[in-house]
Simulated assay, not measured.
Amino acid sequence: MANILVTGTTGFVGANMAKFLSEEKDHSIIGIRHDNSPIDAARLLGIDNRVTWTYGDVLDANFVKRVVNDYEIDEIYHFAALPIVRIAGRSPVPVFETNIAGTWNVLEAARDRGIEEIRVVHCSTDKAYGDTVQRKPYRESQGVGVSEIYGTSKAAADLIAQSYALNYGMKVAVVRPCNMFGPADSNPRIIPNTIRLCLQGKNPVIFRGIGYVREYIFVEDAVDGLYKVMRGLRESSAKGEVFNLGTGWAFDQVQIIKKILRFFPDRKAVVRDPSEYMKREIKYQKLDSSKIRTWFGWRPKQTLDRGLKKTIEWWKGRPDLTGKAINFTR
Rank of each mutant, 00 (worst) to 15 (best):
I73A: 10
L82V: 12
N49Q: 15
R86D: 15
A15D: 11
L166F: 14
W53Q: 15
G11N: 10
G209H: 09
G182D: 08
R33M: 15
A238C: 07
A109V: 00
G225P: 04
A42I: 04
V68N: 13
F79V: 12
W249R: 07
A173R: 01
I149G: 01
G56Q: 00
N167V: 06
R318H: 15
V223E: 10
Y55I: 01
G248V: 01
V85W: 10
G248T: 03
L5F: 06
V175K: 02
S37G: 05
I257C: 05
G89L: 01
H122W: 09
V64L: 03
A61K: 10
D112W: 07
G11E: 05
L304K: 08
G130C: 12
N69M: 05
P38K: 12
I160L: 14
G46Y: 05
V13W: 01
T9C: 14
S289A: 10
P38R: 07
P204T: 00
K310Q: 14
K258V: 05
I76Y: 07
P300F: 02
R208M: 03
I195N: 07
G143R: 01
A110T: 06
V121E: 04
R90G: 14
N327H: 02
D252A: 10
D224F: 06
S236G: 06
A80Q: 02
T125S: 15
L166P: 10
V223Y: 15
K291C: 03
L5S: 01
G323S: 09
I29Q: 10
V95M: 02
R280Y: 02
I256F: 09
A101P: 02
V51C: 07
V254R: 13
R231C: 01
R33E: 13
D266W: 03
R113Y: 08
I326P: 08
T294G: 11
R293E: 08
N99K: 00
G114D: 05
C198Q: 04
Y77F: 12
F296T: 02
R272A: 08
T54W: 00
N179W: 07
V242A: 09
A155C: 05
T52P: 05
D70M: 03
C178S: 13
V270W: 06
N203T: 11
V93N: 08
W53A: 10
K19P: 00
R280N: 12
E117P: 04
G143W: 07
I4L: 06
E23T: 09
G232V: 09
I160H: 12
V85P: 05
G46S: 04
K283W: 13
R111D: 00
G151F: 05
I257D: 02
L287N: 03
A2E: 15
S153W: 01
C123Q: 03
G130S: 05
A81R: 02
E23G: 04
K291V: 13
T194C: 12
I87V: 14
V223D: 09
T194F: 14
L321K: 07
S290F: 11
S290G: 13
K316T: 06
